[in-house]
Design a protein around this nucleic acid. Structure first.
Lengths: 154, 154
DNA sequence: CATAAATTACTTGCGTACAATTTAATTGTG
DNA sequence: CACAATTAAATTGTACGCAAGTAATTTATG
């Protein structure tokens, strides 16, 4: 809380810019993923599973910053598509593990070309790309840090 | 289409970063706007109207890159809250003009402090702030340009 | 060991977001 | 002028995204 008071118009510009950029990326993916039969959020869930298979709803929720109210029905949809299976943990029956099926694993290769298209279309130089990513992460961190305003003194 | 082939993981990182940043901003606004009784998308519509009052659904849709399927019900909600009025154009009865009520205009001052809070919480330096905004705009433009792939030769 | 507290997933309800369709009004063309 | 094409809103149906609440299981505490 020092000299960080920005012009309100500028702040609005940032909100709009974020809003617009997210929509443009989502839209680009949506039109291309349509042929594969999945949505962008479903793609993100699969992305997380392609990184590491067999994760609980909770783990997916933390990674994607979504709650179970969003994930449970979403995952049931990709289960119905035959891309993942759901299975309750035997150690802890509260947990539900989500695993890729063969079809789910196979899909990774099919979407690689889509990812490549999008990456190309960003039109950003490498340095812009990295700076943008880092600024976005920094922004997210600041917003989340400040969100829980419980300053716990040591 | 030159040397713009990025590592897929990095592209994913950008998607995630965008996704996360948008959610963090939206969440920050949501918790604060809750006291005012409006949602973040409703706030964005009001923002556009505070810039210039009395716009058609179409104009709002273009500015916010949303379609009437989203805006029509949203605007009916802020109409029910008494913040705007809807009135069909007399020149062209296809158009519906949305105008701020006194309550709608008054709200601008009430949310100014919220905007100030968010602006502060971004935690970005001025240069990071500007670079981020510009990169986001550039990204959006590239995505939208490429979206309509109809290259019309002169 | 029994019970309270915490954790995990599920469910419900509301509000976006968008594709696709419909309706009504306006503009363009022969 | 008539009729096709276009435009603007509204409607319908599907899928998020999240708050709030529920149910079942596990962990913590007295």
């Amino acid at each position: 809380m020092s000299k960080k008071y920005k012009n309100l118009d500028l702040d609005n510009q940032l909100c709009f810019a974020l809003y617009a950029a997210t929509h443009s990326i989502t839209r680009a993916y949506r039109t291309r993923l349509d042929g594969v039969g999945i949505t962008y959020p479903q793609y993100l869930v699969l992305l997380v599973l392609w990184e590491r298979d067999q994760q609980t709803i909770k783990e997916l929720a933390v990674r994607l910053k979504l709650d179970s109210g969003t994930l449970t029905p979403l995952i049931k949809r990709i289960e119905n598509l035959g891309l993942v299976t759901r299975k309750r943990s035997e150690n802890d029956e509260r947990r539900v593990y989500v695993s890729l099926t063969v079809a789910g694993k196979t899909l990774e290769k099919r979407v690689a070309s889509i990812q490549k298209q999008i990456a190309c279309k960003t039109g950003l130089s490498d340095s812009e790309f990295f700076d943008l990513r880092d600024s976005l992460y920094k922004l997210t961190e600041s917003m989340n840090d400040n969100e829980s305003n419980k300053v716990i003194p040591a």
